[in-house]
């Protein structure tokens, strides 16, 4: 098949849609089990219209995973009651053959995670698909290595299809800020009110040495 014909065939089956989210076609509705042994479908139950924080890990991982999980524990604390209410956290195992729901439950208990944060296991084919769709480096050789995908945190607000990423070893403040970047937009008057607070804080600083980015000055 030449390229032109390939394109023509593609155009006939084009996967363009006009909804906000790439939807279940992209995210899949693969079946997962939570650390509380509940069955969930990935897009419909976990992603749809939600603001989510996703990372990949496995319980026996000794590289970046323990640091990541420990950091996420502090992130969950910093986000306070938002987790479970309008922000949802998911940690997906990269080694489902080792991590059944019971093992994940033990892991969650060890880190004393709170409700609103679910650990997930499922079929390794489904996990691979999601790993590549959520975290791809867009470089085939690199993407083959599962350890490529343990050091970052994916943030998605599906209701506005907003994506961000944070290094899992960044400061808690930075990770939390990145998560908040995906918040659904606030009304203009509210943002101007927050800007006045931020400006008052800038005005107290000297020599244009702002220790934080402006947006984080908005936090009350």
């Amino acid at each position: 098949m030449d390229r032109r014909q390939f394109f023509t065939n593609f155009a006939k089956s084009a996967t363009c849609s006009v909804s906000a989210s790439p939807g279940s076609d992209f995210f899949t509705n693969a079946v997962f089990r939570t650390h509380e042994n509940k069955e969930v479908r990935f897009y419909d139950d976990l992603i749809k219209d939600r603001h989510v924080v996703i990372n990949f890990m496995y319980t026996r991982c000794e590289g970046s995973c323990p640091i990541t999980t420990a950091n996420l524990v502090r992130v969950q604390e910093a986000l306070k009651k938002r987790v479970g209410r309008d922000i949802f956290m998911y940690s997906i195992t990269l080694k489902p053959e080792e991590d059944d729901p019971a093992t994940l439950k033990e892991y969650a208990a060890m880190y004393r995670t709170k409700p609103g944060w679910q650990f997930l296991t499922g079929r390794s084919e489904d996990i691979d698909t999601l790993r590549l769709r959520l975290l791809a480096e867009h470089h085939p050789a690199i993407d083959l290595n599962i350890n490529q995908h343990t050091g970052m945190i994916r943030v998605i607000n599906d209701s506005i299809n907003r994506w961000f990423m944070a290094p899992s070893q960044a400061s808690v403040e930075t990770i939390v800020q990145t998560i908040r970047w995906a918040d659904s937009p606030k009304p203009l008057a509210e943002r101007i009110r927050q800007n006045a607070i931020a400006q008052a804080r800038i005005d107290k600083l000297q020599h244009h040495m702002l220790p934080t980015w402006l947006d984080s000055l908005n936090e009350s």
Binding site: H149, S168, Q169
Partner: peptide, 21 residues
């Protein structure tokens, strides 16, 4: 670093961007 997890592999002096730093 090819052997570094994503999000940590594009580094300057071993660090990733943080506008707070």
């Amino acid at each position: 670093k090819n052997n570094q997890p994503q999000g940590l592999n594009f580094q300057i002096n071993g660090k990733t961007f943080d506008p707070n730093r």
